[in-house]
Simulated scan of single mutants.
Amino acid sequence: MRLANISDRLSLVTADDELIDIAQETGGRFSPRIQDCYDRWDELLEVAATLDGTAGRPLADVALHEFGNPAPQPRQVFAIGLNYADHAAEASLPVPEDLTVFTKFATSLAGPYGTIPLPPGTVDWEVELVAIIGRGGRHIPADRAWSYVAGVSVGQDLSERTLQAAGPAPQYSLAKSFPGFGPIGPLLATPDEFEDPDNIELGCSINGEQVQKGSTSDMVFPVPEIIARLSRITPLLPGDVIFTGTPPGVGVGRTPQRFLTPGDELVTYLRGVGEMRHRIQAMEQQ
């Protein structure tokens, strides 16, 4: 099943690529806001399945600016670092033996299309699979973890490397939380949409040049193991967002290093979900 946040309203994307406004079709039984629906996720899926044959608005008719982040106001945002061995190698760091965890502040989250303001410094790209929690819990076993996932989407963990490296300790969360540094979308796809949810292609390009391409099968800690390990420490809540790490190909790992500049077009994709498109623009001086 695929869902979308269209003009701040939750819509089902049918098998015929038509959009069904779930709140409208159910007479207000569900909130139109997708974030409100994660607390009733199992119930929502049952109802959405009955609407799959309903005629709706063609997905192709939706303007890009209407697409929003499918998890716009999570209570918790987790991000996993160095979760691909080749990315750890390009960063000249060892492959971690346990999760490397930081956060992106919720104000950095954004939709899948539009512009991203470029702050001073050296801004890098990081394509990531984003997992969104549907059923919360603690001590979730890895062999059942996918059943706790509402769905997956594609995200960018944009990073300002100068700030990240400043100070006696790395500033991961601050450097990755400028406005627009956490776009997610355009769709949320439930795990059963994939032949193997642990093996999905992802990548990104800049001005038409592919700079990253990988598979989630190369994760050091696959999504179920991430969920199991996080939930040993803290309860996961419905609607929580997990950025699961990036494959190799980031700018800081290149020779010479390369970073985003005003005017660049950044295209980010996850097979089965779609692609995001963003134009990088200079940040207005305050």
Rank of each mutant, 00 (worst) to 15 (best):
E209V: 04
E128V: 00
S215W: 12
L82K: 12
L230S: 06
L129K: 06
A23N: 12
H87C: 03
E284R: 13
W125K: 13
S7L: 08
Q24H: 14
D8T: 01
V211L: 13
L158T: 00
A49T: 08
I6L: 07
A79F: 04
R9S: 10
V62I: 15
T50R: 15
L187N: 01
P58L: 04
D143H: 10
V252Q: 14
D218S: 11
L236A: 02
I80S: 02
T234R: 09
G208Y: 14
L109K: 04
R138F: 05
N5V: 05
P224M: 10
V273G: 06
P32V: 09
R57L: 13
R33I: 10
V273N: 01
D39W: 08
R9T: 11
L45W: 02
E265V: 04
K104L: 11
N207K: 06
E225Y: 12
Y172H: 13
I206T: 00
Y84L: 07
I140R: 04
G214I: 08
P120H: 07
E275D: 10
Q212E: 08
D240N: 03
I226Y: 10
A88W: 12
F30G: 04
D192E: 12
Q164P: 02
S159A: 04
N69V: 03
D17V: 09
I226Q: 13
S31C: 11
R277E: 03
D42M: 03
A48V: 03
P235M: 08
Q210D: 14
P112I: 15
R29M: 14
P222D: 00
A91Q: 11
E225S: 15
P168F: 01
V211Y: 08
A175R: 04
R232P: 02
G28P: 02
D8M: 08
R277Y: 02
F178C: 12
D21Y: 06
R271S: 14
T234M: 13
E46L: 12
G253A: 07
D98K: 03
R9G: 01
A63N: 12
S108E: 05
R2H: 08
D42N: 13
K213E: 14
L129M: 15
L10D: 02
L266Y: 06
N207F: 05
P58N: 09
G253P: 01
A15L: 10
P112E: 13
I206S: 07
D36T: 14
L236I: 11
V154G: 03
L118N: 09
T162Y: 01
D61K: 11
V13Q: 09
T107R: 07
S177N: 12
L163V: 15
F181G: 06
G114V: 10
D16W: 02
